[in-house]
Nucleic acid binder design. Structure first.
Lengths: 159, 159, 159, 159
DNA sequence: TTTT
DNA sequence: TTTT
């Protein structure tokens, strides 16, 4: 079965980074996508903004936490997950989020936040495909300098 | 900005069809997508099922309501929309759904529910791209026989 | 059946715009996507650039021809089409191209070519879904000023 | 940059499987996707079939070679690659293919070819994300029995 | 609640 | 031929 989401939008705030006991990072962002259309009857232009909670794990979480900022434009690919939890009143609540497995920063060169380009890695795509928790741990414990981000590059089939 | 979802899954129940005052249909389905993986540490196979609420409007709603059944396998493309509403306790609640704009029945000929193939249209893709509410209304008021479904075919660029 | 391509890349040259007898524009771009990975055996970083021929029709062709430039970063969605033709030697040749039905300029505000932002429309998505040649013609004959680009906005379902 | 293709279609012939000196399989299929639309001017229904050459490597190649048959319906995700080669006349030729990194068999239960269901694995998604050539080799040398196919399941992040 |  |  397929459960795939692709988003291009901007962060409404800086990323939030938390850490697991294992040392793995978990980064969460709020991403806005807006849709514009012209009402066929009234002819009015309309706009609607949708906010998405996007969660990154392991190596992706590190890169997202380090390089994304409020206002950054980003491409995200992942899957929908809805979590069930209980409110204080004992009632079921649901929260839907996007579990990201691919991320691509779209603010080229001077783009985005002022000092963004200072430590940005070359524009490229990061992903989590096939990453297990063990290798993720080792990635998470590697150096936080910019080149370390490249540890997450996809080892691909060399044909 | 981009907000796109693609799902391939099976219906957990027959579609629910409601009608607007204008006569337009609104069809809702519950779609299951499951994900299987092997835990890298324990080696165990795991499986997780995600349930999606998918909503179809206008011409798509008609086709979905007519041809999809509990257990049908379907491809859906659309966008994420989260609705905010108030519970009886006055607290904010959120419901996330997929607003479909393309649908593709995957139960081929002999496939799916027993008597499914009897009145199924040729395997094809239906979509709502660019459909305004007025044209949608006229589609909704057209005959309910199988060929009518074709009214929703995308008029495409003839090059 | 589904035949969908999504690309994010940069133009290798300015767009080429041609016109049909009907007045409709046809715009073609060459789009580079590059893939980077680290070879698992040698540990070397590798990079491979793929060039795509992307074709826009009707209203999309106008917007693409007007606002895209060499070096622009763009999101394109469309379908694969392979054309068969005959070389001078009488042998069959094949050319594969992407017929775009959605386009999204990713060079934000300050981004892209120097004077790009001067006449750029608000960042948004253009599409051709469901556009027939007749409506396309009328779009093509509308004024070429920036606001005209909005004529191509998707009329969407107002629920 | 992003270069992504998603196809749902049917095989025009049985898969072709070749083997690398390393023992890795390479499987190629011809996949048809068809598009139907109604001409807005003439009102005629039209149909166009596009044929795609899809190539699978490593573990995916094994599964594709074993379980797909002429007529099978399949979901494929991958990237576009155009190869340049020289005809006998010394002229450059180009061949475009889809390098698959995910595959999903859509013929449920009784679907597709007669004896398909006999040895089919549970309906699921196979992928090559992040597979390097070394791990691919070991997968290729594992047993060819049905359960072996599960070796290719995505080890995913266990949150 | 589907399906394999 | 783009870009980092």
């Amino acid at each position: 079965m397929l459960n795939k989401v692709t988003l291009i939008g901007r962060l409404g705030a800086d990323p939030e980074v938390r850490y697991m006991p294992s040392g793995d990072a978990i980064t969460t962002i709020r991403l806005a996508t807006s849709r514009r259309w012209k009402d066929r009857n009234s002819g009015e232009r309309k706009e609607e903004t949708e906010w998405h909670r996007v969660v990154f794990f392991a190596g992706l979480a590190k890169v997202a936490g380090e390089y994304l900022k409020k206002g950054s434009q980003v491409y995200v690919e992942g899957r929908i997950r809805t979590n069930k939890w209980q409110g204080q009143d004992g009632q079921d609540r649901y929260t839907t989020e996007i579990i990201a497995d691919e991320m691509h920063m779209l603010d080229s060169r001077s783009g985005g936040t002022a000092n963004y380009a200072d430590n940005a890695p070359p524009l490229s795509t990061y992903d989590n495909h096939g990453a297990g928790s063990s290798s993720a741990s080792s990635a998470a414990s590697s150096s936080a300098s910019a080149p370390a981000a490249f540890d997450d590059f996809d080892d691909d089939i060399p044909f």
